[in-house]
């Protein structure tokens, strides 16, 4: 475990806490894409299948449980909770995310480390995570102004992926058999998707203005 990896995991944890805080404190999920949250549930369930079979460390197992339960809790709030579900921008959040699921699964069948159930699910979760933010970014562009908690949420999600890329670079130079080409490619694509958001986030931060995304 290197500092980049730990920073990445902590940043990722922050994104989950930001959402839970926003939903709990404001009893509102306006500006949050339910589709992105549902994709994240699929990502974590598909990736953490080995939770009970492949023990890595207490930290690893605890974090897996935290990510799976929190992502399910967020989807539960947005779908079931009587107060929160009313604030969901149903008509704005129209990204057809099932295409992303189908595409990622197709890719995972073609490109994986081994053609086993676990490896295909793992590759599927990596590809799906790379594109999971799309419905959220589209929703932000549609709703134009971004409330700062949601903006911070997307910012930290991007930052977590940048830390992971630094982690892979570090491991590449320090470990002999380190090759995660699937993670490399998907991670770079994922971070690239955030690039324009980071740009507008930086501009709004510099001008101390409201974050405006071009429609």
């Amino acid at each position: 475990m290197n500092a980049f990896r730990l920073a990445g995991d902590m940043t990722h944890l922050i994104t989950v806490l930001i959402l839970l805080l926003k939903i709990y404190a404001t009893k509102s999920c306006s500006g949050i894409s339910l589709k992105t949250q549902e994709l994240y549930v699929m990502v974590f369930v598909a990736r953490y299948l080995d939770l009970f079979t492949n023990f890595i460390s207490v930290y690893n197992s605890v974090m897996k449980v935290v990510f799976v339960t929190s992502s399910i809790a967020i989807v539960w709030c947005m779908r079931i909770h009587p107060l929160v579900r009313r604030t969901y921008d149903k008509e704005q959040d129209t990204f057809r995310h099932y295409f992303l699921v189908a595409g990622s699964f197709g890719l995972a069948l073609l490109f994986n480390e081994n053609f086993t159930f676990r490896e295909v699910c793992w590759a599927f979760s990596i590809y799906l995570e790379a594109v999971a933010i799309l419905p959220q970014l589209v929703l932000l562009q549609r709703s134009g102004n971004v409330d700062n908690l949601t903006g911070q949420y997307v910012f930290f999600l991007g930052a977590y992926r940048v830390f992971y890329i630094l982690n892979w670079i570090y491991r590449y130079f320090t470990e002999k058999h380190f090759s995660r080409w699937i993670s490399w490619i998907a991670g770079l694509v994922q971070t690239a998707l955030y690039a324009d958001f980071f740009y507008y986030y930086f501009i709004s931060w510099k001008n101390n203005s409201k974050l405006q995304l071009p429609a």
Partner: peptide, 10 residues
């Protein structure tokens, strides 16, 4: 042989 550290990341 190296420990099977497959997918030791989150």
């Amino acid at each position: 042989p190296e420990k099977d550290d497959k997918h030791d990341e989150l």
